[in-house]
Amino acid sequence: MVAQNIAFFILAAISVVGAIGVVRSSNIVHAALYLVTVLACSAGLFLLIAAEFIAWVQVLIYIGAVMVLLLFGIMLTRAPMGKNEDLDNDSKLPGLLVAFAMLGLVVALITDAYTGVDKIALGGSEGLQTLINGKMSSMSTTLFYTYVFPFEVVGVLLLGALIGAVVLARKD
């Protein structure tokens, strides 16, 4: 468990630094690369709690597809590649206020809900083993049996998004 905690704190620290890089970087390409770091660390965090399928979906879809799409967007909007001070507006103070209010509220709620209650923890290597055994099959059963209708609706939504993106971006 100690090794798991150490790995968690390393990945969490890299994610937070990367996330601050995404919102503070003055170079748009660097911001995209910081976002890749955050998403990769999230995939590592999923692996850490034995959610290996979601971790690889994260790598394939977020790091693979979404980031390529974002880089295409940077290219097509002819965003300035180098350092550029014109990426932020002048509402830094309201932004900080809202972000800290949100953070304080959520952290207060979480600590209120999870102190005193017996701690939910993954119990030792045995707990991890039960997670790994049969996790994928139970998840597939949930997805294709209980939630098969939402699954189909998501397919139609993707088709709609595809057509919508083509219609929006086409030159006429």
């Binding site: 937070v16 601050i20 990426l87 932020d88 830094k92 932004g95 809202v98 972000a99």
Partner: peptide, 16 residues
């Protein structure tokens, strides 16, 4: 929660 708050800050302050 920390990542979400940083994201909110980005949505409010970014212009691009």
């Amino acid at each position: 929660a920390i990542l979400f708050s940083i994201g909110i800050y980005g949505v409010i302050t970014r212009k691009n």
